[in-house]
């Protein structure tokens, strides 16, 4: 396969993240996403699946002298008005709930909020179809 230049033309990326907030691959995913936008490329959607859903968690408390990755993701997605989707089935299984789901399942606390949206796996497939490249982080 020929090498693809990322400087020549604008690429549409879909980014899937599968690892938890403390994993190096989650940090790399954010760095990649930032670099993609800085290079003039487009991110059609971020999709957080498996333990990746923890990156959207608003209830993660990071020690002051450590990197707060969930907050950095939140700021990044808000600042650039990106489409950040958290898989609802993976999130429910891991206790990452928004207000609506917390009420639906009668749980006492919600732990994910805007700019993140909880939705289904169709959003991943939709993004894959829309993007030139799917870039995955934190898979096996």
């Amino acid at each position: 396969m020929a090498a693809v230049s990322l400087t020549g033309s604008v690429m549409k990326f879909a980014i899937a993240l599968f690892s938890a907030a403390h994993a190096p691959s989650s940090r790399r995913a954010l760095l990649f996403a930032q670099a993609a936008l800085a290079g003039g490329h487009e991110i059609v959607r971020l999709f957080f699946y498996q333990d990746g859903v923890y990156n959207a968690g608003a209830s993660i408390v990071t020690p002051q002298d450590e990197q707060d990755l969930p907050r950095e993701w939140r700021t990044f997605v808000s600042d650039h008005q990106l489409d950040g989707v958290v898989c609802i089935a993976a999130a429910l299984r891991r206790g990452v709930l928004n207000d609506e789901e917390a009420q639906r399942y009668q749980r006492s606390a919600a732990s994910v909020e805007a700019p993140w949206a909880l939705s289904g796996l169709g959003q991943l497939h939709d993004a894959i179809q829309d993007a030139d490249r799917l870039i995955c982080f934190g898979g096996a």
Partner: peptide
């Protein structure tokens, strides 16, 4: 849950005729 969640991606794709 990894194997099940991997399979769910495949089944969802199948449901969309991809």
């Amino acid at each position: 849950p990894s194997a099940r969640e991997a399979l769910d991606i495949v089944l969802a794709g199948g449901a969309f005729d991809l």
